[in-house]
Structure formats: C-alpha cells, structure tokens
Design a binder for these strands. Structure first.
Lengths: 150, 150
DNA sequence: GTCTTGGCTCAAGTCCACTTGAGGTCAAGA
DNA sequence: TCTTGACCTCAAGTGGACTTGAGCCAAGAC
C-alpha cells in the first residue's frame, strides 16, 4: 500500500502541512511514521480531508467534525453510504441558513426605503424576530446571524 | 439636549458597556465626559448602534463599518436618506451569500446520493468558483461566508 | 563531505470582537 | 460618615483554526 508524505497530501488536498499536523493533534486524521519520524499517510486520508473541508463549509467546528468522524466504523474502510449518512443532516442546516439570510435580505429591502434603522422595529438590526424563535432552529443559525439583541 | 449614561445606552441598545467602550476606542461612536470622567452619549448614538448591529449581521467587520460611518456628513445630523445610502450596497452582499449557500446545498443534494466526497469532483468540498481565488489562508468558501469574516 | 530539500517538535503569535479582572473614583442616599 | 452602585482605566484573557519561528534531523544529489 503506497503511502503519502505530508507534502504530497498537502498539495493534493490543498491543506497546509501545518494544518495537517494540527488536524492530527486534534484527532481528525492519523499518520504512521517512518524510522526517521516523518509522517506517512494512507490514501484514504484524502477523502477524510474532503469530508473535513465540506463540513467546514457547512459551518461545523472541528470538534463537531471529530465527533462525526468518530462514528465511522473501525473494522472496515468507510463506504459511500457511511459518508452519505454523515452529511445527510447538513441539508437542514443549509436550508435554515438560506432561510435566515433571505429574510434578512427582505428586511433590508423594506429598510432601504425607510432608512429607519430603528432599534425596536428594524428587521435588519433585529434578525432575532425572524430567527431565534427558540428551540432547535436557532442553534443551526449561521454565526453571522447569531448576533441577536438581548 | 438630554444625554444618556453608558448604562442607559447599554440597556436600550442591547450592547454591553464593555462593547461600548471598545467601540469608542475603535472610533465607531463618540461620547462627551462629565466633570468626573463618566461618558455621556447623545441620543443619536442609538441609531448609530443599530446601524453597527445591522452591518454586523450582514457580515461587515468593525473596520468596514467605521469606514462606512466616516462617510456621514459632519455638519448636520444624518438623515434617513444617509442611512439608506450606506446600507444600499448590502443587498448585493446578501444576494451573494445566498447564492453561495444555495450552490453548496445543491452540491450536497447530489453528493448525498453518491457519497463520493471526491477531492476533485465533489461540489461539497469544492464549491467551485467560490473557492480560493484569493491567496493565503483562503478557505474554500466565499469570504463572505467565512465564520470570521474579514 | 556537504548542500539542499523536506521533514520534525514545541512554543508562541495572529486575527477579531469583545470580556474579565484588578484597582480606583464619584455621587447620592441612610 | 459610611455604603452602595455606577462608572473609570489599563492590561490581559478568550476562542477557533490555524501559522510562524527557532532550532534540529535525515536522505538524496553532486
């Protein structure tokens, strides 16, 4: 089984070597070592890194990503179905982000006309009206939209 | 002209006193002082803070917000039209964010089926034209959607 | 034999938008 | 007079995801 150096993985995955070392420290990827101490990666690390990147794009933290990766089976290589299971929940997350952004934009459209920027009424400064109708919804909100007035 | 204490502004704007002091240090808001050194704010600071919050929700950094506020006229109080001018450009920004997220979601839809997560082909890990066209430290998502927008 | 390239570790730094803590001042009320 | 509460400054801390720097090692090319 052909192994990859950190430089090769870095180039092929588009992830800096320092980031790869950091991911290893965080328990997201693993590597064996040569006699001299250099990291050697299996090819499968590339798919794992693709997953990490996709999950980051959806807005997951590295901690959440580590937790998701931990549910992969140890005894066999992950299948397409395994990866699909992990990413199935992301759709709701994205839908919610899109919905919140769309409402913010529509609020902007009505606010541009009035220029009010009222602390109480303006949808732009108060996306809380739209988003944080508490419960599960708000948790998935884009960090951009989480700045809700107290 | 009635002036507001930092506590009053904090309660009415929903912004912590420490944040108000920080904003002053960053040149976003101004305050006069009493003989004893306590801050006194004009009522207009409330609208300014509403603007700051709205701009943050759209994804602007404090630096960008400061630049925008600097274009307000000194010689007269800002009108509704002034505020509307400042926020007019935000619509494009929101449209771009929505477009990027929608593309990501649609990529997810096709990826859930195949579970491929290929580094080369997967729309999820490569939201294509949104990706790293700006140099160092670039993640794979539009800068507008980064968790910490610059 | 030495030069270059690529790798290693560990600690510290970076960015942003704040918050926290220590230590002190000021004004009003009991 | 004492106490309380609100306020002040300045320095340092926070969190997430890395990057940077210093100092060192190992293998291949010449």
């Amino acid at each position: 089984m052909e192994l990859l150096t950190i430089g090769e993985v870095s180039r092929r995955a588009g992830v800096a070597p320092s980031a790869l070392r950091y991911y290893e420290q965080q328990g997201l990827v693993a590597a064996t070592r040569t006699a001299g101490g250099a990291r050697r990666y299996q090819r499968s690390v590339l798919r794992r890194l693709a997953f990490v990147r996709a999950a980051q794009n959806v807005g997951l933290s590295l901690g959440e990503i580590r937790a998701a990766l931990a549910t992969l089976p140890d005894e066999r290589p992950p299948t397409a179905r395994d990866w699909a299971r992990l990413s199935a929940g992301w759709r709701d997350r994205l839908d919610e982000q899109i919905r919140a952004l769309t409402q913010l934009r529509d609020g902007l459209d009505s606010c541009i006309g009035c220029g009010c920027l009222s602390l109480d009424r303006c949808a732009l400064s108060n996306p809380g009206d739209l988003a944080a109708r508490d419960g599960a919804g708000a948790r998935w909100l884009s960090p951009l939209l989480r700045r809700v007035p107290q």
